[in-house]
Design a protein around this nucleic acid. Structure first.
Lengths: 246, 246
DNA sequence: CGTTGCGTTGAGAGGCTTCAACCTAGGTGG
DNA sequence: CCACCTAGGTTGAAGCCTCTCAACGCAACG
């Protein structure tokens, strides 16, 4: 991983989609994004049952929240992309009810509850944007529930890829219609509630239909309109550009 | 519905599971629980796309959050029981990304953003408990995602019934191991991602195994231990009694 | 006493899982 | 420099879980 200090803080990029920030607001956000840590791929950042260490902030790389069943089956319940955070109020809990693991190597920061409280008090615009961001996380969870509960296997995968395209675009990690996807088929299966074998067949079908190219850890969406139509993708739940419309 | 003013406010009962409240705190919570409205069964309280009217507070009855697909399929993504609330920060949104409908007749209150902000500032213990409550709502969504994504049909229904038993117990709506369940099989299907026909077969199987009795709008859990074992029910995600353990 | 909403049951079809084998690329060690 | 090794991807076949379509039961209600 290349620490890219020249690149803008993805959290700032994300929060600015929820409302205008002043220079002071941006500086404050940058201030809580440190110190940073690097964590290698396939590593747990948070373990279910433990006391939370602070609020996680993703700066680079991809991670995921998950829960385990007694059988050993894993359900991935959220993806954490650059700019994404853990819960603002997680400090209220004594025991985490889920775990967080990394897909790829990640650059992260752990924000202390006091620092979070401080920035929310001193910077109301940041506070609003952070709360919006939490609302969107919850809305995304609802959309995932609809995805797994209601859509066919090919629709599920198409929806996931459509959502990631938009979320990664917000933080400037999409080139053309292409982005890095450091996720194995097994993990896509644990995300969508499908077996690895069937994930493979669905991916083959998406390729056959000329909708995607997935190779070398990169996903290229070859026909965005058709992919989104297949997924019945309506991005309203991400609440992007909401304040402009107000 | 019998307006039962003698009965304790379910929101107070719920919040007290998250931390001790003073008399002043309780009075403040009671204060925002008014004015109340009665809404009949099978009615929408919130429509996707509309501007939120305030934060919904459930006082009596059962409701549900849901999203619709273009095909007309409905996914129910949460149950709202007495004491449950909508999002604290929902006022930040210009458009709801989901709808809310009632299962039964409901007694509700709409809390204005200013009232919510006021109580959070004046009553820190209430503020913490409200935030905890939101964390639990999100954790419940994750558990539902695991439920639909990872468990078999009979396990899903068993898990739902186990969760409802505990949540309704908190607000004093369980007698023995029995509670009112004003929900049709079709709606159970839309909750668990199953067809109505299959819900029926699963219910028959749960009855055959002597785990439940469901009739006349009431569910009796005949063997709680076995039902929870079947569901692999671990209530940690509801974070009940967390502060006592601290 | 017919209508209506919901629950129940049967039969056939199909989507997805499981088990298993095989392939391929990249890394390692001789 | 090449052979081996390993992780992940690909493909085939059989079976089951769940869906769909359809009919029927039943209690509440006007």
């Amino acid at each position: 991983m290349t620490p890219s200090s020249t690149q803008q803080n993805p959290l700032i990029a994300k929060l600015e989609r929820f409302g205008p920030l002043s220079d002071g607001d941006r500086a404050a956000v940058q201030g809580i994004s440190t110190p940073v840590e690097y964590v290698s791929a396939q590593t747990d950042l948070v373990h279910e049952g433990e006391k939370p260490r602070g609020t996680l902030l993703m700066l680079e790389g991809m991670a995921y929240r998950y829960k385990m069943r007694a059988s050993g089956a894993r359900q991935i319940v959220a993806y954490l992309l650059p700019g994404d955070m853990g819960d603002l109020d997680v400090g209220l809990l004594n025991h985490m009810d889920h775990s967080v693991g990394t897909f790829s190597e990640c650059k992260v920061a752990w924000i202390k509850p006091e620092a979070l409280a401080g920035i929310q008090q001193a910077h109301p615009a940041v506070a609003s944007a952070l709360r919006m961001s939490t609302l969107v996380d919850e809305a995304t969870l609802r959309e995932w529930l609809l995805n797994v509960g209601g859509r066919s296997s090919i629709e599920r995968v198409a929806h996931l890829f459509s959502e990631l395209l938009l979320r990664l675009q917000v933080v400037g990690l999409v080139t053309g219609d292409s982005y890095k996807l450091p996720i194995r088929q097994e993990e896509l299966g644990d995300t969508t509630g499908m077996s690895t074998v069937h994930v493979n067949r669905v991916l083959m079908e998406l390729r056959r239909r000329g909708l995607i190219d997935l190779s070398g850890g990169s996903l290229t969406i070859l026909n965005r309109r058709d992919l989104e139509a297949l997924a019945e993708f309506k991005p309203n739940y991400l609440h992007l550009g909401e304040w402009r419309a107000a």
